[in-house]
Simulated scan of single mutants.
Amino acid sequence: MSSIDIHHPHSLPMPKARKAVEEVAQKLAERFGVDYSWDEDTLNFMRSGVDGKIALLPKQLHVSAELGFLLSALKGPIESEIRRVLDERFK
């Protein structure tokens, strides 16, 4: 198993940050069949081969995920794509 652990700063008010995280989750669900649910200010997501969460904090997002065996080989591209989306949504 391989892990992803990203801390990303943001300056959005919490309601706008939550909306942006929700939009990202909806796209992941549409594109990759990811299931997700909120637990207070943490979005949990899962599908075969990945289990993770996005913790929404006042000035930072914390993305963590455990990748299964097959997705471990794609850790670099997956992590790069997460960082790209975070840079795009949370300037």
Rank of each mutant, 00 (worst) to 15 (best):
G52D: 05
V24T: 00
E23I: 07
E81H: 15
H7G: 01
F69T: 15
P15D: 08
E23A: 15
V63A: 03
M14P: 09
K53C: 05
L67H: 04
F69S: 15
L70K: 13
A17P: 11
F69L: 15
E79K: 15
Y36S: 15
S3L: 11
L86P: 07
G49N: 07
D5N: 12
G76R: 15
K53H: 06
D41K: 12
S37N: 15
H10A: 10
T42P: 03
F90A: 13
S2K: 15
V34W: 02
P15N: 06
L67F: 02
K19G: 13
W38T: 03
R31M: 07
A25G: 10
G49R: 07
K59S: 05
E40Q: 03
Q26P: 04
Q60W: 01
H10L: 09
I78N: 06
N44W: 01
I54T: 10
A25M: 12
A65E: 03
K19D: 14
Y36V: 03
M46Q: 04
R31F: 01
K75T: 06
S72L: 05
A55R: 14
V63D: 02
L71S: 08
K75Q: 09
D87C: 02
G76K: 13
L67W: 02
D5I: 00
H10C: 07
Q60I: 00
K53T: 01
N44P: 01
Y36W: 15
A25P: 05
G33P: 12
G49S: 05
E22V: 02
T42D: 05
H62F: 06
E81V: 02
L43T: 03
R18S: 10
G68Y: 02
P58M: 01
D35F: 09
L56C: 10
E81P: 03
A73Y: 12
E88S: 09
N44K: 14
E66N: 13
K59F: 10
P58V: 01
V21C: 10
K91Y: 03
S37T: 14
R89N: 08
E40G: 00
E81S: 15
G76L: 12
A20I: 00
R89Y: 04
K75F: 09
S64C: 08
A55F: 04
I6T: 02
F45N: 05
V85H: 08
P58W: 01
I54R: 07
K53Y: 00
S37P: 03
G68T: 04
G33R: 13
F32Y: 14
P13Q: 11
V50R: 09
